[in-house]
């Protein structure tokens, strides 16, 4: 039966020895989306993506791409519609950027004109004749993306594409990825261990922790989990807290701040006025949001590294 998703995994499991690196993952990637695959280092992101690409065989479960089951018989057909950048970029350092792309273009059997196009997209046009050994890490990463873009596949799988890039490179890569669905009709799966990165790129998100998919939905839904609060910093915290509680406000103290549930602007203004009339100096009034990071940590466990 046809599904609405471009990529689906069903109870996808990978076991090495006694360790289940990926455990019954049911990933669902809608067409045209940027699916952020988020998880701490070692959570099973790369292994999952490698299974989707056929670089690792599932211990259990199955995968469908474009409604076709991934197996030995369909593999070539599916790979022809897929571009990927797994772990660090693959390259032959003794060759130029253009020659590296020509190898991939030859293997993919796509048009030679694509080389020019992808070099322009990743802005490596001027460095096309330079040996890749002399490229910076950022340039190699962009070359890896260019190679993945050759043939303009329907599905692009990018595993930690901003790894090792400087802030400007990260920003550039992010902007580039964001344009791919609208400009070229691609569906992108992008993995990262950085929540902020996924927050700025993805519209769908899957969070993996110790091999298990602990969250999967739109990024919007993830944001809906966040909780807004008003934070006050005052001269006499204890007195102010008493005063607020007397007024029936459920305030709590967190370090030097008093945290109040979200209220409207007029209410905040009145509250401030009353505090000042009680000779309590007001240092800060801030709007706080339970950050995505907090949500991420609560889903993945505080012990996980970000």
């Amino acid at each position: 039966m046809p599904t609405q998703n471009l990529v689906e995994t069903h109870n996808l499991t990978k076991q090495y020895g006694k360790v289940r690196c990926v455990n019954a993952v049911n990933m669902q990637v809608p067409p045209g989306s940027i699916y952020g695959f988020l998880g701490p280092n070692g959570a099973g992101k790369s292994t999952t993506l490698k299974m989707i690409l056929g670089l690792a065989r599932p211990t259990e479960g199955s995968i469908t791409l474009f409604d076709v089951p991934v197996n030995e018989k369909n593999r070539m057909k599916l790979l022809a519609q897929t571009g990927s950048l797994i772990e660090s970029p693959s390259y032959y350092g003794h060759l130029t950027g253009e020659e590296n792309l020509r190898i991939i273009q030859t293997l993919k059997g796509c048009s030679e004109k694509d080389i020019d196009k992808v070099l322009k997209i990743v802005r490596l046009h001027d460095a096309r004749g330079k040996l890749v050994n002399h490229y910076s890490l950022g340039m190699k990463q962009r070359l890896g993306l260019a190679a993945a873009l050759l043939g303009f596949p329907k599905l692009l799988i990018l595993d930690e594409p901003t790894n090792g890039l400087d802030p400007a490179g990260i920003q550039e890569m992010r902007e580039l990825i964001c344009t791919l669905p609208s400009k070229y009709g691609m569906t992108v799966i992008v993995s990262s261990h950085l929540l902020s990165e996924i927050d700025q790129m993805a519209d769908h998100v899957g969070i993996i922790r110790k091999g298990e998919l602990v969250y999967q939905d739109t990024l919007e839904s993830l944001h809906a989990h966040s909780k807004e609060q008003i934070a006050l910093r005052v001269s006499h915290t204890a007195i102010a807290l008493d005063l607020l509680r007397q007024k029936g406000i459920e305030a709590v103290q967190e370090e030097e701040y008093l945290l109040l549930p979200m209220v409207d602007d007029t209410y905040v203004a009145n509250l401030c006025r009353q505090l000042i009339t009680q000779n309590i100096s007001l240092y800060r009034v801030e709007k706080r949001e339970k950050s995505l990071e907090d949500i991420f940590l609560s889903l993945t466990g505080k012990e996980s590294s970000l």
Binding site: L79, P89, S90, Y91, I104, L107, A147
Partner: peptide, 18 residues
């Protein structure tokens, strides 16, 4: 060696050829 180095197995084995 061309494939053993620099993660080239990934691109070699994802080429759409048997």
């Amino acid at each position: 060696r061309l494939e053993h180095t620099r993660h080239n197995w990934n691109s070699f084995l994802t080429a759409p050829l048997p």
